[in-house]
Design a protein around this nucleic acid. Structure first.
Lengths: 351, 351
DNA sequence: CGCTACATTTGGATCGTTCTATATCCGACG
DNA sequence: CGTCGGATATAGAACGATCCAAATGTAGCG
């Protein structure tokens, strides 16, 4: 007998169990939810039958009837970035523990794609959305995709355009300003005077904030920052390598750089090596994020630890807390970052 | 007027649109699915109204009625591991493009937690499951959680216990045997004679296969492998550091090691440095996976490229293809890996 | 005019659950 | 004996979409 003729059993439902036990659907439903209303004897018979037939609960049907949700949508730029991967792991951990399931989406840093991903995710009826916005995504368009009632939490970035007062969202931000200040102050204390800020885009929130922290620390130390010492790049290793020339081909060349993040710092280190300059000896630099690689490259990278997995857990907890109270005023949480001093932030070579 | 008194609009449904346009639910439904049956004029009126009211399609309700699914469950050990993060990114890319959504779950390498995660995910009715099994997970228990009809694809590992003939699954495996052979042959060609296999667990499928490839290559070269040259560890950096002593405290000490994966190799490099040995000079080693860090550590790590993101895409494509034909015989796909030679696999110091 | 052909629309049943209100049973109590 | 209360069980209408079979309108044609 060919296997294609094997009986394709329909999925087992409440009705099948009810029929087999000679009780009503309602009773089986009560058993499933451990209601105390059902007689002990009946409960046991039903449970045995559930087991026997391999019943699988259909949460979608239940959610439809109850108008509830059992999922959270998580939208990040790129899981390939260890920072976001750790963040996602933290989110999923808490979301899963709360009995929810994580719907994943990634934007590849494109506002267009983000729009498509959000529209697709929202049709699956998540209870809320955790979004690390792609660069250039606008508040209005996000609201169009998600509707005005959807609980939302922005991570790490803000949306562009007006925030509608009617539908506020929560925000979880790293203390980018203070972090960049810490890194800058550290390099100044090491004796550097010509310090640049390298990488990241000016239009992104963390880019602005880190740059602001850098400039504030420089100003307090009464150090000049020529405009050419502020070099932009995409926030990844590859584009940082490309942009390095604009930083290093200057006269006078800076002796140190505060980098937008670790990926960018690693790119700069690569280009330094290519030019025969030894990072951590001839040129000092700091990163941001403290990804695993930061401790492993040689020289090890001084950076700011953001504990991305814990941030993910925190984001999930904040959103889950918000589910109950969708109408309340949006909260903004800023979490401190910690300077981790390693070998890359040497004193200047002359000193 | 306090905002808590603001009108909490019910969600917009087909019925609302139908009422506003003075047509039936069925017509609106046809418009939504771009059916050619509906008159052009009507279609435009309905579409305008959908826009105006901010209608959001309820895919769960549609799936219930149509007995279809629009999601794929993805269960990995740990997103914090860049190999799995890249894999997940690849899966989500293809799954998303196909109009499905990814349900995420992570097991933390625990068979117990995997069981719980699978049971939770399956209640959300995914069309299929991509599973990178936790160590020690058994075929029978997985089938219990997922039911006999669920399309499944195993990645990278096989399940323990008997494979029930009734419900076959697809498998996507790296060519672990050949990969380990390549690495071993390369070290032999460099002049090494005392070569060890370091890290990984013997009970896991890739562990067995890589070890087998290593032993086969050694045997072909007529080189002896003392039992003490096979050192186990958990497949992560931390435990590799711990296990390094068992490898390096031997007499005669090996001059080279084929490592289970990159994480383990990086751990071993760390411990070598701590003992004043220079990896890539005094001791040769190879990894497996070619994670980003492999190219960046110093010395850069010779390893086997597995292209995890492309593997993720491939896994998703295989599973999506299988959705249509759930009863066919399970396929096993093995993909080649590529040796990437870098600095860590030096010749032996004496030679 | 009656008939068919075609284009368009629609009511009601249905998917698998939960909710609400009601029914049934049984012993106790006045 | 009537009826009241607690403990269980259940019928039927939701939830928001889709499918099916049938209805409607409109035009063409002999």
């Amino acid at each position: 007998m060919p296997s294609s003729h094997a009986p394709v059993r329909r999925k087992v439902t409440l009705i099948d169990i009810a029929a087999a036990c000679d009780v009503s659907r309602a009773t089986v439903s009560l058993v499933l939810r451990n209601s105390p209303l059902v007689n002990r004897h009946t409960r046991e018979r039903v449970q045995a039958e559930l087991q026997r037939q391999g019943y699988i609960y259909n949460r979608a049907a239940a959610n439809l009837r109850r108008r509830t949700s059992s999922s959270i949508a998580l939208v990040v730029n790129d899981l390939g970035n260890p920072f976001f991967a750790e963040f996602a792991a933290g989110v999923d951990e808490v979301v899963g523990t709360a009995g929810f399931v994580t719907l994943l989406g990634s934007t590849g840093e494109s506002a267009e794609r983000q729009q498509a991903v959000l529209s697709s995710l929202v049709e699956h009826g998540p209870g809320g959305v955790i979004l690390s916005p792609a660069e250039g995504s606008e508040a209005g368009r996000v609201m169009d995709a998600l509707g005005p009632q959807m609980p939302m939490l922005m991570f790490n970035r803000e949306l562009e355009g007006e925030t509608p007062a009617s539908a506020p969202w929560d925000i979880l931000m790293l203390d980018n300003v203070r972090g960049a200040e810490l890194a800058t102050e550290h390099l100044i204390a090491q004796g550097h005077r010509r310090i640049a800020f390298f990488g990241g885009h000016t239009r992104s929130t963390p880019g602005q904030q880190r740059r602001a922290g850098f400039l504030a620390a420089m100003k307090r130390a009464k150090l000049k920052v020529p405009g050419s010492y502020l070099v932009e790049s995409a926030p990844n290793r590859l584009d940082a390598v490309r942009a390095s020339a604009a930083l290093l081909d200057q006269d006078p060349v800076p002796t140190a750089a505060v980098c937008y993040n670790d990926a960018v710092a690693l790119g700069l280190m690569l280009e330094l090596g290519r030019r025969g300059l030894r990072p951590g000896r001839d040129f000092a630099l700091t990163g941001f994020d403290n990804i695993d690689e930061a401790a492993l490259v040689s020289p090890a990278l001084t950076t700011l630890a953001t504990a991305p997995r814990e941030r993910g857990r925190q984001a999930a907890r904040l959103l889950l807390a918000r589910l109950g109270h969708p109408q309340e005023h949006g909260q903004c949480t800023t979490v401190p970052v910690e300077l981790v001093i390693r070998e890359s932030s040497c004193p200047p070579p002359a000193a």
